[in-house]
Design a protein around this nucleic acid. Structure first.
Length: 344
DNA sequence: ATTCCACGGGAAAGCATGGACC
DNA sequence: GGTCCATGCTTTCCCGTGGAAT
């Protein structure tokens, strides 16, 4: 059934973008100076997840690079590279200047300097999930590099601007800001239909079933494609030639837990046992959680460290914390908590 | 009003790693 | 090779804050 798995991957960028014409042309205007060898304007892309921000950014930059030679580009996910060093390292990687820097024994200043020294060509940089960046002053440093153009992506405008200091605030306030809304069901359906056409065998799924998926995704394109991918794989496994409504029904929660399982595997063993305790308890307060954790693990970390872990897990949306101070309790996110928290 | 204690930020110690030097 | 040093990352220590219990 699956003929081209690549187009079902979350990072796939199609050759044309549907239902984001205004955003795409707006961003492409901001990048226009690059066609004449000058730096583009700093742009901000805001909007909920799965609204096409990353896709539009990558697509527009790709398009730009097809029309001009002397532009380098790099995409950095600041969620994964949240430290100043890691982000800078990725940026250097984009211009092939990481040789002899693999080691950590290089001060971050040197990395920044090396980017600053680079003036072979214009450099476009997409910083995704930029609100996750620990040290926001990096944006200020990057902003001051003449031939560097930044495209900054974040979920909510406030979450990015609130922690910025005045100096950066005033610099960036004049930048281009693009707000993305959620996709409507018919828009998602069109996006999915394309993927179906490119990636699946003909007649593998009916229009009505595509709408079903679009509806279940609640405006989130990434989620929609995830469900489609899961459903197609499932149908393949079961030897079906068509994706039925039943398959889709089963795939919706599966697609969700797939991502979740991935996140869980990224945790250290200590974090995993914490997660299991929370999942099994349903809801638990900090004190008893720490007590049980100490019983479970052979050499437990400090209470303070546990809190660090917990905030990280909250960050990953694996658990949710409610209440403040004394009354604060933790619980795992999602219904199928017990089934996903299998010991390893 | 007072005490208690969880929370979370910042400083500092500890750890792993790779480079320079001998 | 062996030793020391620099660096980023992780963990711990320390402490102010503020809500809850007494």
């Amino acid at each position: 059934m699956i003929e081209n798995a690549r187009v079902l991957q979350p990072e796939f960028i199609p050759g044309e973008i549907k239902h984001r014409d205004a955003e795409t042309s707006h961003l492409s205007d901001a990048l226009n100076p690059l066609l004449h060898g000058e730096a583009g304007e700093t742009s901000f892309l805001f909007g909920p997840s799965g609204a096409g921000k990353t896709c539009v950014a990558k697509f527009t930059v790709n398009q730009l690079q097809e029309n001009t030679v002397d532009v380098e580009s790099q995409y950095v996910n600041c969620w994964e590279n949240y430290s100043r060093f890691r982000t800078l390292y990725q940026l250097l990687d984009g211009i092939g200047k990481t040789i002899d820097i693999h080691r950590q024994s290089t001060p971050t200043d040197v990395l920044l300097e090396r980017i600053r020294d680079y003036d072979d060509s214009q450099y476009v940089v997409i910083l995704d999930e930029v609100d996750q960046l620990e040290d926001k002053s990096l944006l200020y440093d990057l902003y001051r590099i003449p031939n560097l153009t930044m495209i900054l992506i974040a979920n909510r405008e406030e979450s990015l601007f609130a922690p910025l200091d005045d100096r950066l605030h005033s610099r960036l306030s004049s930048s281009e800001r693009l707000h993305f809304g959620q996709y409507r069901v018919d828009e998602l359906t069109a996006i999915l239909a394309d993927r179906v056409q490119w990636g699946l065998a003909t007649n593998a799924v009916e229009r009505r079933q595509i709408e079903l998926i679009a509806d279940a995704a609640a405006g989130d394109a990434r989620k929609a494609i995830g469900i489609l991918r899961t459903a197609a794989k499932k149908a393949d496994r079961e030897g079906l030639t068509e994706i039925t409504a039943e398959i889709i029904d089963e795939s919706v929660p599966e697609a969700k837990s797939e991502l979740r399982q991935k996140n869980i595997e990224n945790l250290t063993s200590h974090q995993q046992s914490l997660f299991e305790i929370i999942a099994n308890a349903g809801e638990i307060n900090g004190k008893t959680l720490y007590e049980r954790y100490c019983e479970t693990v052979s050499s437990p970390k400090t209470k303070r460290t546990m809190r660090n872990y917990l905030s990280k897990m909250e960050h990953y949306n694996l658990i949710a914390a409610t209440g403040k101070t004394q009354g604060k309790t933790y619980k795992s996110v999602g219904e199928a908590a017990e089934s996903t928290a299998k010991p390893r």
